[in-house]
């Protein structure tokens, strides 16, 4: 199947977009985070290919603009729930890369002390309520977190990420409905990366525009170009404002994962041509071109950032490798508080 061309933004009103006012520092931060995600995952992919990490992993490469664009407008106090493909959200929300890499390597100094791995990294101190191994599993939790915010009258928002596959889970339906009837401050961000494992979303959902799902819950819904970090950012600024004022919003970010679903994926369900077509609109390249166009940083600076992000990942690997394996006696701890 040919790649469905990602939609272009409808929200753009020339000269009035929030992303027009992004500072040089903010742009640099976005560029750094997108490169951190990619460098982190390229290292993880390498480790897997060498058998140096066990289990499985779900890589986010190609989708970086969604996590970075969606979370750039958030404050540290805002909350997120993430997915099995969660490295991008985790890095975007702000994380200690060292402890994150250590967790993937199963080390005692990892975020979960080696008990969670790739799919269960959380950092409650930074509002990250966790990645999640169950498709749609984090959405009800996001609604509960938003209930806390509403009951405590806290001026914050919850962003709940999930994929196109989760749109067919009951937890999605129940959660969006409850958030809607209770006017909870949640932005539901569907990352439509075109496939639920091998299942094309065109075969699993009989809608051209997935944001139409929002109509069923009486909330605003919008589909955006997930390869363009500026469009994601602009849509999120608006969605966060709406979520705080009137209740939940559904954003559908059209994007694409370059890698397989997980490490066992032989890509039998899609063509090289399709993958290459999407790579022409690489999110990091789009951001880089715009930074250069605006002149907030030059080629040399951006190259330096890329090199630094790769070095940061190498440092994270060293941090992880310096730590020991978890103590076997720790297996039984942390079940109950």
């Amino acid at each position: 199947m040919a790649a469905k061309t990602a939609r272009t933004g409808k929200s753009s009103r020339a000269g009035s977009r929030p992303s027009d006012s992004l500072t040089a520092e903010q742009l640099t931060d976005m560029y750094t985070k997108m490169n951190h995600i990619r460098a982190f995952e390229e290292k993880v992919a390498y480790f897997f290919s060498r058998g140096m990490i066990h289990g499985t992993t779900h890589l986010y490469i190609g989708e970086e603009a969604t996590a970075v664009g969606a979370l750039a407008p958030l404050s540290d106090k805002d909350l997120i729930t993430s997915t099995h493909r969660g490295h991008g959200h985790t890095i975007s929300k702000g994380i200690d890369l060292n402890r994150m890499m250590a967790e993937l390597l199963g080390r005692s100094n990892g975020y979960c002390k080696g008990k969670g791995g790739s799919m269960h990294i959380a950092d409650l101190s930074r509002g990250n309520l966790g990645a999640n191994g169950i498709v749609g599993g984090g959405i009800p939790i996001a609604v509960g977190a938003a209930l806390t915010l509403k009951m405590r009258k806290q001026d914050q928002v919850v962003v709940s990420f999930f994929g196109d596959g989760a749109l067919n889970e009951g937890s999605f339906h129940e959660s969006v409905n409850l958030a809607s009837v209770w006017d909870l401050p949640v932005v539901f961000v569907c990352e439509d990366n075109q496939y639920g494992m091998s299942m094309s979303r065109h075969k699993s959902i009989n809608l051209d525009d997935l944001a139409d799902r929002a109509k069923a819950y009486g909330i605003p819904g919008k589909t955006i170009d997930g390869q363009n970090v500026f469009e994601v950012y602009d849509a999120m600024v608006e969605a966060i404002d709406q979520a705080k004022k009137t209740g939940p919003v559904l954003l559908v970010s059209e994007t694409y994962r370059y890698m397989g679903h997980s490490k066992s994926d032989a890509n039998r369900y899609r063509t090289k041509e399709e993958i290459n077509e999407w790579k022409k609109r690489d999110p990091i390249a789009i951001l880089r071109a715009e930074i250069l166009r605006r002149g907030t940083a030059d080629e040399k600076t951006l190259d330096g950032i890329e090199a630094q992000t790769r070095e940061d990942i190498e440092a994270a690997v060293r941090f992880a490798e310096e730590a020991g394996e978890p103590d076997v006696n720790d297996i039984i701890n942390d079940v109950y508080a």
């Binding site: 975020y111 979960c112 002390k113 008990k115 969670g116 269960h120 950092d123 409650l124 966790g130």
Partner: peptide, 8 residues
């Protein structure tokens, strides 16, 4: 709680 290494 367990998955998060006791952090929640």
């Amino acid at each position: 709680r367990y998955m998060f290494g006791g952090a929640a």
